[in-house]
Amino acid sequence: TTEYTFTDDEEARRAIEELKKRGLTFRYEKHGTTWRVRVD
Results as ranks from 00 to 15, higher is better:
1 T>H: 12
1 T>A: 10
1 T>M: 12
1 T>K: 08
1 T>E: 09
1 T>N: 07
1 T>W: 15
2 T>S: 07
2 T>E: 08
2 T>P: 04
2 T>A: 09
2 T>H: 12
3 E>T: 13
3 E>I: 14
3 E>P: 02
4 Y>M: 09
4 Y>Q: 03
4 Y>P: 00
4 Y>F: 11
5 T>G: 02
5 T>V: 14
5 T>W: 14
6 F>K: 00
6 F>E: 01
7 T>E: 11
7 T>F: 12
8 D>P: 02
8 D>L: 04
8 D>V: 05
9 D>I: 12
9 D>K: 09
11 E>H: 07
11 E>M: 10
11 E>G: 05
11 E>T: 13
11 E>L: 08
11 E>V: 08
11 E>Q: 11
12 A>I: 04
12 A>Q: 01
12 A>K: 02
12 A>W: 07
12 A>E: 01
13 R>E: 08
13 R>H: 11
14 R>G: 05
14 R>E: 08
14 R>A: 12
14 R>V: 07
14 R>T: 08
15 A>I: 10
15 A>R: 04
15 A>F: 15
16 I>M: 13
16 I>E: 01
17 E>H: 08
17 E>P: 00
17 E>R: 12
18 E>A: 10
18 E>N: 09
18 E>Q: 10
18 E>H: 08
19 L>M: 08
19 L>N: 01
19 L>F: 14
20 K>A: 08
20 K>L: 11
20 K>I: 13
20 K>N: 05
21 K>F: 05
21 K>R: 13
21 K>L: 08
21 K>W: 04
22 R>K: 11
22 R>I: 07
23 G>T: 01
23 G>C: 10
24 L>Y: 10
24 L>H: 06
24 L>W: 05
24 L>I: 12
25 T>W: 13
25 T>Q: 10
25 T>A: 09
25 T>P: 08
25 T>I: 12
25 T>N: 13
25 T>G: 06
25 T>D: 09
26 F>T: 04
26 F>N: 00
27 R>E: 13
27 R>P: 01
27 R>F: 14
28 Y>Q: 03
28 Y>M: 08
29 E>G: 04
29 E>M: 09
29 E>P: 00
29 E>C: 14
29 E>T: 11
29 E>N: 05
29 E>H: 06
29 E>K: 06
30 K>W: 04
30 K>G: 01
30 K>N: 04
30 K>Y: 04
30 K>M: 05
31 H>K: 11
31 H>F: 12
32 G>N: 04
32 G>P: 00
32 G>W: 02
32 G>F: 02
33 T>G: 14
33 T>L: 08
33 T>F: 09
34 T>W: 06
34 T>S: 06
34 T>M: 12
34 T>Q: 10
34 T>A: 05
35 W>I: 14
35 W>K: 02
35 W>Y: 05
35 W>Q: 02
35 W>D: 02
36 R>S: 07
36 R>L: 14
36 R>H: 14
36 R>I: 15
37 V>F: 08
37 V>E: 02
38 R>N: 08
38 R>G: 04
39 V>E: 01
39 V>S: 02
39 V>G: 00
39 V>P: 02
39 V>M: 04
40 D>N: 10
40 D>V: 14
40 D>C: 15
40 D>E: 13
40 D>Y: 15
40 D>I: 15
40 D>M: 14
